[in-house]
Design a protein around this nucleic acid. Sequence first.
DNA 1: CGTCCACGTCTAC
DNA 2: TAGACCTGGACGG
Length: 386
Amino acid sequence: MPECPELHLAGRFINGTCGALVFAGGVERSPVGRGPEVPFRCEAYSISAIARGKELRLTLSALDPAAGPPPQDLVFRFGMSGSFRLCPAAELPRHAHLRFLTRESPPRALCFVDPRRFGSWRLGDAWQPERGPCVISEYQAFRENVLKNLDDRAFDKPICEVLLNQKYFNGIGNYLRAEILYRLKIPPFEKARTMLEALKEQEMRKKDPSLTLRKKVKLRQENPDLLELCHTVPKEVISAELFDPEHSDNYAAFKNWLQCYLVPGMSSLRDHNGRTIWFQVGAGEPLKLSPKGAPRKNPQVKADPEAPSPKVTPRASKQHRKAAVKPLKSQVKEEEKEEEADGPKKGHARGRRKVTAAPALPEVPLGVRRSSRTSARRGKGAAPAV
DNA sequence: CGTCCACGTCTAC
DNA sequence: TAGACCTGGACGG
C-alpha cells in the first residue's frame, strides 16, 4: 500500500530491524527491475533509510569508511505494489527486483519486492525535483508551499484531485485523500482554491491574540484543518503500525482502520483522471459531487439533490467495523520459480477494455448496507441480507 | 475460463 | 484526457 505511511514504515523497518545487520558483496538486480544496476560492492556495509513523501532513499555505507568504497545513495518509488522485505536469501519472494545480501551464515536478503513493476529506483541522493515537501516529515514547509501558491492553476481543480498532486501533496495517495476529506466531510469536488482560501481565514481566527495559549492549542486540536489532517492522518497509520514488514499481513488491521475508502455504505465516483474517489454524502450538502455536473445515479443519494436540510446524518451506524476476519495466509505457495525468465515476454496485447465508462458506483442496496461489514469490498456470500 | 479492479506515475495523440 | 505500463486477486459464468 504505498502511500507515505508505507514509505516511512519501510524506512523505519530498514533503520531498525536491518540497521544492525552487516551486508556484503554486490547488489543483485533482476533483469526486469525498473531501475539501473547498482555499482556498489563492499565486504561489510550497512544500510540506512529516509523517507520523503512517496520516495525512500537508502544509503549504503562501508563499515570502514577508510577501506571501503564511498557511500552509495538510491532513491526508490514504490509504484502501486512496491515494498521491502527481509527474508532468507535461499527463499527469495517472487518479484524481488533488487536484493542486498547480509554477511550472515545462511545469508538473508533485504529485497525490494514489486509485482507490478510500477516502482523504480535511481542512483544518487536527489529527490525528484518536482515533488513538494513531505506531508509527514516537513509539515511546516508543506503547509507554506500550499498556502503561498494558491494562485497556481493547479488549484483550479477539485480538492480531491489536487490532493493527488505531488508537487503540493507529496505523500498523499488514493486512500489517504478519501480518509482526509471524510474526516471533515468535505465534498470531494469542491474547488480546491475556495476550500484552501477559507482555511486561511480560519487560521487567522485561531491566532486571535485575545485567546490564551491554552485556548489556541485547544482550538487547533479540536478543529484540525485540511492541511493539518494531511499530516496527522498519515501519522495515524504509522503509529497504528499497520503495514509492519515484520509480520507480513495485517492488511486486515489496515482495512479496519479505514473509515471511508472501500468501506461498504460509502459512495464512490471516478474523478477526471479515472481514479476512484470514496466519500460520504453528507446529508443536506449542496451535492456538488460529480465531475461533470449531475450526481447521477448514486445509490445512497438519489432523489432530491437539493434538500438543504441541515441535519447532518451522523454516519449511519458508527463503528461496526471490527473486521475480525483474519485471512491468515499460511497457505503454502507453489514454488512457481523464475518469473524473471519472462523478461522479454512482452507482446501480450491484452484486450483493452475501457475502464472509465460509467461512474462506477457501489451498487449497495440501501437495505443491505450495514450487513456485511467484514472485508470491505467483498460483500459477497455471507450477507444474509436483512 | 474471462472481466474488472488495484495504495502511481508518465507521454503522446 | 486517453492509454501505457504490469501482476494478481476477486468474482462471474
